[in-house]
Nucleic acid binder design. Sequence first.
DNA 1: CAAGTAATCAATCATTAGTTTAAATACTTG
DNA 2: CAAGTATTTAAACTAATGATTGATTACTTG
Lengths: 221, 221
Amino acid sequence: MDSRAFKDQIYEQFGRLGKSLASPKRLEMLDVLCQGPRTVESLAVATSQTLANASQHLKVLRAARLVEAEKQGLHVTYRLAGTEVCDFFLAFRHLAESRLAEIERTTRLFLDGKNVLEAVDQATLLKRVRSGEALVLDVRPEQEYRNGHIPGALSVPLAELEQRLAELPRDRQVVAYCRGPYCVMAVEAVEILRRHGHKAARLEIGVPDWRALGLPLESQP
Amino acid sequence: MDSRAFKDQIYEQFGRLGKSLASPKRLEMLDVLCQGPRTVESLAVATSQTLANASQHLKVLRAARLVEAEKQGLHVTYRLAGTEVCDFFLAFRHLAESRLAEIERTTRLFLDGKNVLEAVDQATLLKRVRSGEALVLDVRPEQEYRNGHIPGALSVPLAELEQRLAELPRDRQVVAYCRGPYCVMAVEAVEILRRHGHKAARLEIGVPDWRALGLPLESQP
DNA sequence: CAAGTAATCAATCATTAGTTTAAATACTTG
DNA sequence: CAAGTATTTAAACTAATGATTGATTACTTG
């Protein structure tokens, strides 16, 4: 084997990993999987695609060893192949954010349409969340909350929020979070809360970012 | 803009970054660019492709804002768009190495063919290099040495090595390094050195890894 | 074991990406 | 400003990818 053939084989392998990151849908699936294991169908629904497509994308991710599958009876549960994969995804996202101005522009445009622009910046918000000064609200589906959540957070999945408004204080700030900066559940939660006279704000980061910051998580309420 | 459209736009942008990492040749070019700025032609030669292809790949990398171009007279010099890009490339490489067993297998197969298998492991080798116990040899082209090298290293580009063997001690271990684990220059250097009766070993890591370890670099000899 | 459900596979099609070759552009230097 | 060099662009072709649809497999449950 000459050195060119060696290099070609090596970078070919690197390319396999790169190719698996080349599809928007696959990246969205990785983002969702950072919240915890999921079945194929639930991933398909979460990422708005057909079951067959989701299955095909998962096959690609599995070939790159980014995810693992486990069959439990009728369902196949996919999970990230390790916490390094989640950490890498966050690094990838940060690089994209730092390099592609379009991402910030799109986000701003979206948030301008909604009425959720913050009065306080993320850093002080994060401080309030950490100190317990604000009530922290986890609006993700309950299963994801159970997989791990910000300590002291109350679980009220977005779908149940309107029915359970009475559980939330009106005198204290409510800080809602969800899967991360590009998950819109917390945005919608803040809209609902403000419409009903609550002092609400959105924490942009999600549990994976929280953990990557080295902050502790809670697993059971 | 509804939330699906928002997500589609966001992950579309992430996909742009992912797509730029989906080609073996582009990854190899990024690897080379981690050593410092280079012209299109020199990149084309280093990665064994035509000028036109190299130019097209660089266009893709530039569209993803991973590299920047600067025209100096007749030559266009490309460089990484920031040290984050190099750090990210290393993270990408580590993930690939940890997930794809084929990479290690290919590397081992290649090294088995050459006679450079180590008697000592990388960790103790690194210790000897750091302590100055061994003579450290930088066999990359001189320009890359000037961009930054391991403190105390001697620059003898691979092409000049056979002529300059007299400069090297025979009683002390010579540790050669090059661009990184998949650059074969240090492997070839060790072959030459051993053939001439020197005690030689190869340090797998390159300057980018060295810097990422938080170790200091030297810029001028 | 038949019916039903979750997931995968296979075939097709439209789109995109990569390579090659040749032509065009941009700049320098005599 | 003509000749030469470095780079980019364009056109043509081939290969690969992703979405869609329908069929198939694997498993559970009545």
